[in-house]
């Protein structure tokens, strides 16, 4: 059940967001006075305007989630930007069509750096204006978007391996044959 406080917060937030970008707002509360709000942008071009508004509201970027929705066309992604607003939580979602790029939030939120570098390398999402676009976790030899294709763990971890173990196993199996 939403509390009076969380309902007030939701109304203020919805009005402020509607003033800067078209999108769909919804809110739910857990009965403990904590607001969880969602704002789905109609178009990714409005992301920076929303981010600037939230920066002005002293929001903290908590993290960014990227996902490839099941059944969506290849290369389409959903990005969810999670912001803390003094204890309330707002998730701003935007759909990235195949081949589209998203603006970096680093100029507004310094801590977007690691988050953006991670979604860029894991999903192959292009981020414009990222001031530090080097790999975060993955080795340079691994191509972009490993979460969207099969990569042997040994390749991902850049691990050296030989055929010795398999030769032993195959020899042992051959020995078991009648």
């Amino acid at each position: 059940m939403p509390t009076a406080a969380s309902s007030d917060h939701a109304a203020v937030l919805a009005e402020a967001l509607a003033a800067v970008a078209p999108g769909h707002f919804r809110a739910d509360a857990d009965g403990k006075g904590v607001l969880t709000a969602w704002f789905t942008l109609d178009h990714s071009a409005h992301l920076l305007a929303v981010a600037a508004l939230l920066r002005g509201m002293r929001a903290r970027l908590a993290t960014i989630t990227a996902l490839a929705p099941r059944g969506a066309p290849p290369g389409e992604h959903l990005l969810a930007y999670h912001f803390d607003l003094g204890g309330d939580l707002l998730t701003v979602s935007v759909t990235m069509t195949t081949g589209a790029a998203i603006q970096s939030l680093v100029p507004l939120f310094r801590n977007a750096d690691w988050n953006e570098r991670e979604i860029a390398e894991m999903y192959g999402i292009a981020i414009e204006g990222q001031p530090n676009p080097r790999r975060l976790f993955l080795d340079e030899s691994v191509g972009d978007g490993p979460l969207e294709r099969l990569i042997p763990f040994s390749t991902l971890a850049n691990a050296a391996s030989t055929k010795a173990l398999w030769e032993i196993l195959l020899a042992a199996r051959a020995g078991d044959q009648p």
């Binding site: 908590a62 993290t63 989630t65 996902l67 929705p69 099941r70 969810a80 999670h82 803390d84 998730t91 988050n115």
Partner: peptide
């Protein structure tokens, strides 16, 4: 602060589970 994002599609496997 530990934050979890979960998205389900009604199946037994999550569509996305992310934590920061």
């Amino acid at each position: 602060e530990l934050i979890y994002y979960l998205r389900t599609d009604g199946s037994e496997r999550p569509e996305r589970l992310k934590w920061r």
